[in-house]
């Protein structure tokens, strides 16, 4: 794997942020610590620091997104960057310009940092392989591969509420097969020495050899939730019903939906997370989502500081184009 460390420079510092896989525990901890220091900024009256002043960040989204795109945008704004938002119409690009041409054209506009979401697994790596030196790529979700900033904000949330990963049992519930979030979370939890990572899913939504990622597998929700400290629910997309992966939303909820009743299988102080957007009544009961153990809205607000942290670490370490102050 020649480009395995594409995202790190010779000194092990961040050049790009493409996948949790390939990173290490000190970097993840540095991200979480840096994010901690930014939370105070986001809470004050003037929410800006000049770390990215004079830089241009392009949000390049080939798939629709509200939450991720807007938190990236806010993060970049609070670091004083100029933002270019591009919602690329996928059908237009597949017919016309190649992804590489899109990249070259944007590079010609002196973009310093690309935030990219694309439906192909590996697209962020592809971008990082082809950008000019000094230009950085942040993965905002590539196909079913990784969504590393989401995983980092989830880790931030867990650390905020639970402190020590080595004492924790974490269960990830739902559509592992299609989830880039789950892959990133699993790598991150393992790098942070989580005591046990479980995945709970029906066979049809579980890719083969998932245990090779370093997780234990449960096909039964009650068994899987037993004694866990953290429950991460994944979104179930409606189109999964069409591909015969599941009979119905109703049956999914019956087997894998998180209800108040089932929540009792976990530790009494377990927290409930969801990367959003959630389907109430499909993977999670409304009362759980709005309940006292839910930290779903905290995740969203932490998302801004975590993305600020990652962007600033890249600037600090990689020496973006232009002034090297």
């Amino acid at each position: 794997m020649p480009d395995k460390n594409l995202q790190l420079d010779g000194n092990g510092k961040l050049l790009h942020f493409l996948s949790i896989e390939g990173l290490n525990q000190p970097i993840l901890t540095e991200i979480l610590d840096t994010a901690e220091s930014f939370t105070s900024i986001t809470e004050r009256n003037v929410k800006k620091v000049p770390i990215l002043r004079g830089k241009t960040v392009a949000n390049l989204f080939f798939e629709p997104s509200t939450r991720t795109r807007s938190t990236f945008e806010l993060a970049a704004q609070r670091l004083s960057a100029d933002i270019l938002n591009l919602n690329v119409n996928t059908s237009a690009t597949t017919k016309g310009e190649s992804l590489l041409d899109t990249l070259r054209n944007l590079e010609a506009m002196q973009i310093d940092m690309f935030v990219i979401r694309h439906q192909d697994s590996g697209s962020a790596h592809f971008f990082a392989q082809h950008v000019s030196p000094g230009v950085s790529v942040l993965n905002a979700g590539d196909g079913q591969h990784e969504h590393p900033t989401q995983a980092m904000l989830d880790m931030f949330t867990i650390r905020h509420f639970k402190k020590d990963f080595s004492q924790l049992r974490v269960a990830i519930v739902g559509d592992i097969l299609h989830s880039r979030v789950a892959r990133s979370q699993i790598h991150a939890l393992n790098l942070l020495n989580t005591a046990e990572v479980r995945v709970i899913a029906p066979r049809t939504l579980l890719p083969v050899e998932t245990e090779a990622l370093g997780v234990s597998i449960y096909n039964n929700l009650e068994d899987g939730l037993k004694d866990v400290d953290v429950i991460i629910m994944l979104r179930l997309q409606k189109e999964r019903m069409r591909g015969a992966l599941l009979p119905s939303e109703k049956e999914y909820f019956r087997l894998y939906g998180l209800s108040q009743e089932r929540l009792k299988c976990a530790k009494p102080d377990a927290i409930v997370m969801h990367p959003g957007p959630a389907n109430r009544g499909v993977e999670i009961e409304s009362s759980v989502m709005d309940g006292s153990q839910s930290v779903i809205l905290n995740q969203v607000s932490f998302g801004i500081s975590v993305r600020m942290a990652i962007m600033s670490m890249i600037v600090g370490q990689s020496g973006l184009r232009g002034d090297e102050s």
Binding site: E21, S121, G122, D142, G143, Q144, H145, E146, R180, R183, P207, V208, E209, T210, A212, L213
Partner: peptide
């Protein structure tokens, strides 16, 4: 190929 590699890389298997 449907196996650990496709699972890790999130590639349609």
């Amino acid at each position: 190929h449907e196996g650990a590699i496709a699972t890790r890389l999130g590639l349609p298997a």
